[in-house]
């Protein structure tokens, strides 16, 4: 079983920071509104403060490391295995012959770190490998495509 790219931790941290920042901004806006307009908005502001703090404390510091630590995958000629989840552990087997298409996808953050996300779709479900280096993602995508063609038996 293989780990995904370690830079994924950084990307997830930035994700956490962004959502924490949004919560803090909302907190400030709601607090100002609450002070000058409706007092009940202060409760909402407090809620966002809590969400922001939780984001900052957990989703920036701990969770990314654990997520990386607990995500593993294996790709061979006949199947893909993905192991995901920190507390809710999930093993998924996707036979090569059942894969309908493979996509390498990049958001702006992933692109900045030269990473890509691999999306593996069967007829009924989509499975993700969240962060691979671009080269590796493309290589895997091509390899998967080749395997899929080789094992294109039927459904």
């Amino acid at each position: 079983m293989q780990y995904i790219h370690p830079k994924a931790i950084k990307v997830w941290r930035i994700h956490g920071m962004i959502s924490a920042a949004i919560s803090f901004v909302l907190f400030l806006v709601l607090m100002l509104l609450g002070l000058f307009l409706f007092r009940w908005l202060l409760y909402l502001a407090a809620g966002f403060l809590v969400i922001g703090l939780v984001d900052f404390l957990i989703f920036v510091s701990v969770i990314p490391i654990l997520r990386w630590r607990f995500f593993r995958y294996r790709i061979n000629e006949t199947h893909v295995v993905i192991r995901d989840g920190i507390w809710f552990v999930k093993h998924t087997v996707i036979p090569m012959a059942r894969i309908q298409f493979v996509e390498a996808e990049q958001g702006p953050l992933l692109r900045a770190y030269r990473l890509a996300k691999l999306k593996i779709s069967t007829a009924t479900s989509t499975h993700h490998i969240p962060a691979l280096s671009i080269g590796q993602a493309q290589k895997l995508r091509d390899r998967l495509a080749a395997f899929i063609q080789a094992s294109d038996v039927d459904v």
């Binding site: 999930k90 093993h91 998924t92 087997v93 036979p95 069967t122 009924t124 479900s125 038996v153 459904v155």
Partner: peptide, 28 residues
């Protein structure tokens, strides 16, 4: 077997303690 599109096994912390597992699969 070949009609099952994938197979997932999911174990939550409580399920782990109770020695249980949830299996998920897909059909066309």
């Amino acid at each position: 077997r070949k009609r099952l599109q994938f197979l997932s096994c999911r174990v939550s912390p409580v399920q782990k303690r109770l020695k249980l597992m949830t299996v998920q699969s897909g059909l066309i």
